[in-house]
């Protein structure tokens, strides 16, 4: 089995798409130099700085540029670095990219890919650690995807680039160097809108994405010998959500735990809980559970930020809580 890191898989996907389609361009701060984490390393050498373009620190203008170029025929990939800085480009992304197809009565298409990285890693503090996927998923016209393994990273970046809509591709910084099975050259596109059932189970469904997928799988493995069989779903696509897979799973297990690193309130978990209870209320054998970061900015101190990353221990506690017997305590 060939292995690669998630970062290498993204790079490979970008490389293949740029080679396949001359309309694909990369734009972003220092992308021609590889960017701060080296994701785009080598692309400028392969495709030239005409197509791999370093930009000034002008997120709003560059986002607008990418959208405009997409409207008239290019397929730009823009890197915004930290998702926290997408705030500077929100007008262009939300008021323009997301709505132009609609407002133009279908005349315009915006085949734009926005790459951002998110999450807590490296004690970077409140402005470089957020998980803001729910904001973006709340905007009609945007698609939002996030991979948890190299194969999906490559499959989803390709799908994002080929999609005729603006797609925000979220990379969890803490997964960049996580290794996994390589997708391989020319590998398939991972369809946007399809979740992956990574482990089948009967008693509870754990739905999550990004870094928490590994934690959920570890927790499920630990629960199995104790007689709790957990089904683990990697959502992969946060907009649109694959409700069919989720609902089918919950119909079977009767229970749902949603896990994310974003703060608790108003997150993807809330949306999932709402839709699952609507579709499968009479199949629910217990309240839907949510495990998420405290509703707070993220502290810089390494003594504090670890309370913002749901891990295996928390998942175990939440699941066991759902099966706790009377008087047995938590």
């Amino acid at each position: 089995m060939a292995e690669q890191s998630l970062l290498e898989a993204i790079r490979e996907g970008l490389h293949e798409e740029m080679a396949r389609d001359p309309a694909v361009y990369m734009l972003g701060e220092d992308v021609a130099l590889g960017g701060p984490f080296g994701v785009t390393a080598g692309l400028a050498e392969a495709f030239g700085t005409q197509r791999v373009v370093n930009t000034p620190i002008s997120e709003g203008a560059v986002m607008g540029l990418a959208i405009g170029a997409a409207a008239v025929g290019l397929r730009p990939v823009i890197e915004i670095m930290f998702i926290d800085f997408i705030t500077l480009a929100m007008d262009q992304l939300v008021n323009h990219a997301a709505k132009l197809h609609y407002m133009s009565g279908g005349q315009l298409k915006i085949p734009l890919t926005v790459r951002v990285q998110c999450g807590i890693s490296g004690n970077m503090g409140a402005q470089h650690s957020q998980s803001l996927e729910a904001w973006l998923a709340h905007v009609p016209g945007l698609k939002v995807v996030t991979p948890s393994c190299p194969a999906d990273a490559k499959g989803l970046i390709k799908a994002a680039i080929r999609d005729d809509n603006p797609v925000v591709f979220i990379e969890h910084r803490g997964l960049y160097w996580a290794r996994g099975e390589a997708a391989g050259a020319g590998a398939a596109v991972t369809p946007i809108g399809e979740a992956a059932v990574l482990r089948e189970g009967e008693h509870i469904t754990i739905a999550t994405f990004g870094r928490q997928v590994a934690a959920a799988l570890e927790a499920a493995a630990e629960l199995a010998p104790q007689g709790i069989s957990a089904e683990v779903i990697d959502l992969r696509s946060l907009q649109p959500l694959d409700m069919d897979t989720l609902v089918e799973s919950v119909r079977k297990t009767g229970r749902l735990l949603v896990v994310h690193e974003a703060v608790s309130e108003g997150g993807i978990g809330a949306e999932i809980a709402m839709r699952v209870q609507q579709a499968a209320f009479y199949d629910l054998d217990g309240p839907i559970l949510r495990l998420a970061a405290p509703f707070s900015p993220i502290p810089a101190s390494s003594a504090l930020d670890r309370f913002f990353v749901p891990g295996k221990a928390e998942i175990l506690r939440a699941v066991r809580g759902a099966f706790r017997r009377q008087g047995a305590g938590g």
């Binding site: 495990l291 309370f307 939440a318």
Partner: peptide, 9 residues
């Protein structure tokens, strides 16, 4: 003991 809080129903 350095785990985050888990909200149970």
């Amino acid at each position: 003991g350095a785990e985050m809080r888990v909200a149970l129903p």
